[in-house]
Design a protein around this nucleic acid. Structure first.
Lengths: 229, 229
DNA sequence: GGTGTGGAACTGGTCTGACCAATTGTCAAC
DNA sequence: GTTGACAATTGGTCAGACCAGTTCCACACC
């Protein structure tokens, strides 16, 4: 094993869970078997399985075995973040669904932000737009700058639970967002639209904020669908 | 240490992170120190820290140290689930925010469900209502039955990402929901309202579904606020 | 006094091997 | 066919060791 052995192990075990999910066999091999199968120590396997358990991918029953849980019903959103982080079996569906969730969350966050935003929130959003513009001029990929603006907007809704969820959604869509901003000409429109949204929030106009954000997403979704994963 | 040592360790380390978060010291003691401090082996400490890292509570830099991350910005929603599961420092704010997030998510999910629900979804929701009624007659606490109905509703929106997020929100609010259903008389209204929502979804009336659900939450929120944690 | 620099101590990452206690499966006895 | 006892299996926990970079401090040098 040449590369990062831990990363390899996570990918291998994640793939193993995916494979096992398609069979009636809900039970995984024992930790000792998994260790020898994937050329790692039992310690390393156990640490990864501990994370899987926390993300509700599996259930470990002492003195019995390791069992796969229903992912759609039980698993954490961060199990999908893990997939993205370790580049394992990302599906187009998951991106589509994450995008839909993002729109839902952010539109309602914008509604709340129009009421709750402080001067400091506005400054942070303006700073994010400025940083975005600088990155655009220097030709960098704008995925992270775009994320920073949108997270600043959500943060203005003063609900950390929403912010945490949004962070996960942005993490799990990172690669497709990078691909999106590789399309020429995506930056110009974004800057203008971000400025408009900020203005609406500044004047506490929640209806206008919501509509502008909806339009922002509507325009991007056309391009979005054309990206091959 | 008499009880579940693993649970004790998670609680202790979670508390340690909370304490450290309030000081300028972003760096935690080393794994060996933490192990001796809390009377556990380094192995056990490492497994817990691995989970903390996956939930973006901390960052581990090889050969350097363990650093606390900004929770409001970076941490996963499931870090709050962990707090609920291990009964550590739950704040009234977090419940309030989770409730707000639940309403946002579920209202929009209902809108989608009105379009996308299948006959099977309607059957599952009806089954959840029936189970709810039986539990009510037997005097059991209805928190889990209520959760089952709402998760079935969200599942009808055919977006597993929304379902996963909702699952976390329900897990992190479990104790307060149990307390809510200990209040006498909460079951009667819920059953009727669930039936009404189901009828609206059956006729694909999204506006009515949304309004009924909003009303459902509006009525419960009055009682909700009176619960002491 | 200020500035490098070498080396020791420290740190997270990994592995081996061992023991525990309850579950699980097997097989003999009835 | 049922039951009961024994042996293998399994996850949970621990101790101890080694590795390879990072950190930091004392010491020599300017």
């Amino acid at each position: 094993m040449t590369g990062d052995s831990r990363q390899d192990l996570v990918k291998a075990l994640l793939a193993h869970v995916d494979r096992a999910r398609e069979t009636p066999a809900i039970r995984l091999p024992g930790e000792r078997d998994l260790a020898t199968t994937y050329g790692a120590s039992r310690t390393a396997v156990r640490e990864v399985l501990g994370v899987f358990e926390a993300l509700r991918l599996i259930e470990r029953r002492p003195r019995s075995g390791i069992y796969i849980r229903d992912q759609d019903t039980d698993a954490s959103i961060d199990a999908l973040v893990l997939r993205e982080t370790f580049a394992v079996s990302r599906s187009a569906d998951a991106y589509e669904q994450a995008q839909e969730a993002r729109v839902i969350l952010e539109v309602e966050a914008a509604r709340l932000a129009a009421e709750r935003r402080t001067a400091r929130d506005l400054n942070l959003m303006q700073a994010a737009i400025d940083a975005f513009r600088i990155s655009a001029n220097e030709g960098r990929n704008l995925a992270d700058d775009d994320e920073a603006f949108h997270l600043a907007l959500i943060s203005a809704a003063k609900n950390p639970v929403l912010s945490r969820i949004a962070k996960s959604l942005y993490l799990m869509t990172r690669s497709i967002r990078v691909a999106y901003f590789d399309i020429p000409g995506t930056s110009k429109g974004s800057i203008a639209e971000h400025e408009q949204i900020l203005t609406a929030l500044k004047s506490k106009d929640s209806a206008r904020s919501v509509n502008l954000l909806r339009g922002h997403y509507r325009r991007s979704s056309a391009l979005w669908r054309k990206i091959k994963i």
